[in-house]
Design a protein around this nucleic acid. Structure first.
Lengths: 154, 154
DNA sequence: ACCGCGCATGAATAAATATACAACAGATCT
DNA sequence: AGATCTGTTGTATATTTATTCATGCGCGGT
């Protein structure tokens, strides 16, 4: 339940402007999520959202890397979440890994992946439903692939 | 007066962590600026600061792109201009070069790169914040990488 | 000089956000 | 089954942030 709501929030934020939590609450309600402001305050904290001029934004939308700031990252936090709801399948070819996602899911997945800053990931390119992950070489592409597959299946 | 205070705030933010306006008020007072929370709320608005996990941060430290906002176009923007505004870092793997940019910056960077028509660039693919540059081979990818890095650091 | 205007500010207060606490639902035991 | 633990949520409230309103200051025009 919470997971779907979190993803709904992510999607809302990339699509529209949200200035405060009550506005977010109303928009979510229209999408079938009826929760209170208190819950959203907690969600916002968990999603590590930023608030600035123009309302709330995803960490990946403003280039912030919360992990780098807080210094500690307790395992794979959002990657598992995001993959669970968007990820479909994973393949690799040469030094590239292809992650197929549901429509519109590539962006969040790539953002989460960037956020994790895996040493074997040189960069990502996200379309609408496909993420292209570039690795240093073929071997490490294979490792990244299996790592993503494991996350996907967990 | 306000200007000095604004600068003091900027400096404080890069040096230390500020989680709320009252903390900011106390830190500023130690530096000789005695103002109330109300004033700081206005300052924060004027400085377009962001608040996220870990407190307040400068727009320049996240995805804000002043250059893109003040956008007045006088001809084709040079690679240097575009990279200065959008570019974050450059890597390469095999025959590919990855240019990370701020959100939404990939498109302009790729366009500028295409426009320059470097012989070592076979083609480019732009996502939202990443440009994938394809080169003929690994060696020339390395050259393109260092060339872009030099531009980025200038 | 006086007046009027714009701007910066503080005090008070409204609005927005975070949290303490309690209730509840599902697990996972014995 | 009952006991206990863990995690999620709502209510009520505390804390934090934005705004309203009033005041004072400097400046240009009359």
């Amino acid at each position: 339940m919470k997971l779907q709501r979190h993803n709904a929030i992510r999607e809302l934020l990339v699509g529209s402007r949200v200035t405060n939590q009550d506005e977010l609450r109303r928009k979510l309600r229209r999408r079938g999520f009826a929760v209170t402001q208190a819950t959203l305050s907690r969600d916002i904290h968990e999603l590590r959202l930023y608030k600035g001029p123009g309302g709330y934004s995803l960490p990946s939308l403003n280039g912030h890397t919360p992990a780098a700031e807080t210094g500690e990252d307790d395992g794979p936090p959002s990657m598992a979440e995001v993959m669970a709801s968007f990820g479909l399948r994973v393949n690799h070819a040469m030094n590239q890994v292809i992650v197929r996602t549901v429509m519109g899911g590539a962006q969040p997945v790539a953002a989460a992946l960037d956020h994790e800053e895996w040493p074997d990931v040189v960069g990502t390119v996200a379309g609408d439903d496909t993420v292209l992950v570039i690795c240093p070489d073929s071997r490490r592409a294979g490792e990244v692939e299996s790592r993503l597959k494991k996350i996907l299946e967990s």
